[in-house]
């Protein structure tokens, strides 16, 4: 069922990704300030429908691009937070293809440009909470995973979505060691995957996603710990069984399949009740961690009746 992967047309790839094709970058980056100054009346004139602020956006100020691109967990490039920024530049993200298989109507190996065709790319300013008890605020650009799943057609028996990261040790030095059981694997329940919050990010701050943040496309699930948001995806598979996930395979006592942000369920080695917001400097105060990272309004229903201490 695997189709031949075609060469990526660079121009098509860029026109699908880049906001600057639609809106000058300066306008784009200042959109919020302009909106705040001009008030609601001018909103339609300044921001087209694709650029309207998402109802899912947080009001918190985003972290700087420097913070977001220099402090990453991406073990494919090494275990240090600075390794991804140091080594990810060597990663070839073009050409790129994603194998979509399992219980789908239109399986195949999709060239990135074909995959992105017709996807509505929006900006989403999300809180990002790492399982290590730090957090950031990230202005992603991307499309809803649900839109992609609708495009490829989900068969009725599908219950889970499974993802894999690229394995390419010659460009990903961390993979030369068995730090984790490569490839990195993640999974969501289908209803979690279809939730409008669940995003496939292709950009950051209106620019193409930097490699260290999971280029060319990564998952973003803002109510779960960051490691669920798998990077540099090369495979998406629809399954009827709960798929294996990397950190759960590595240490099932510490990392569950769900891994919802939950201040009441501690990691065995540290508390999850509070978090340190990156960017506050050496003397910043810790902050309370919110249930579902503050996204309970949209996702709490998914877990109704479940014992979240058991299904952590």
């Amino acid at each position: 069922m695997v189709e031949r992967c075609e060469e990526t047309d660079d121009m098509a790839f860029r026109s699908d990704l880049k906001y600057s094709d639609v809106t000058p970058k300066a306008d784009y980056l200042n959109r919020r300030q302009i909106m705040a100054a001009a008030g609601g009346a001018a909103l339609g004139a300044i921001a087209g429908p694709a650029l309207a602020a998402s109802p899912y956006d947080t009001d918190l100020a985003p972290n700087t691009l420097e913070d977001i691109t220099s402090y990453n967990n991406f073990y494919e490039f090494g275990t240090s937070k600075s390794d991804p920024a140091r080594y990810a530049g060597a990663l070839t993200t073009d050409p790129w293809s994603v194998r979509i298989d399992g219980l789908v109507e239109r399986p195949g190996t999709y060239d990135l440009a074909d995959l992105l065709k017709g996807m509505d790319i929006e900006e989403r300013i999300y809180r990002f909470r790492c399982v290590e008890a730090w957090s950031m605020v990230v202005p992603w650009n991307g499309f809803q995973l649900s839109q992609l799943l609708e495009k490829v057609g989900v068969q009725s028996g599908a219950k889970y979505v499974y993802f894999e990261t690229l394995v390419r040790p010659e460009e990903m030095p961390g993979q030369k060691r068995r730090l984790l059981d490569w490839p990195y694997r993640e999974g969501l329940r289908l209803d979690e995957a279809m939730n409008p919050l669940t995003l496939i990010a292709t950009g950051l701050y209106g620019e193409v996603l930097p490699n260290q943040n999971g280029a060319p496309l990564r998952l973003v699930v803002p109510w779960k710990y960051g490691f669920k948001s798998i990077k540099s995806i090369v495979r998406i598979s629809l399954t009827d069984k709960q798929p294996p996930t990397t950190w759960n395979m590595q240490n099932p006592r510490e990392y569950g399949f769900y891994s919802n942000v939950n201040p009441q369920v501690d990691h065995p080695r540290w508390s999850q009740a509070t978090e340190r917001r990156i960017g506050g400097g050496l003397f910043s105060r810790r902050q309370e961690t919110l249930m579902f990272n503050g996204y309970g309004e949209w996702v709490a229903d998914l877990y109704k009746g479940m014992d979240l201490a058991k299904y952590f």
């Binding site: 913070d67 402090y71 937070k81 600075s82 730090w134 340190r276 990156i278 960017g279 400097g281 050496l282």
Partner: peptide, 15 residues
């Protein structure tokens, strides 16, 4: 270094 940003985005952990 921690105060002046030389230890990166999370100076507390870095230090």
């Amino acid at each position: 270094q921690a105060v002046s940003g030389g230890l990166g985005a999370d100076p507390v952990k870095g230090l």
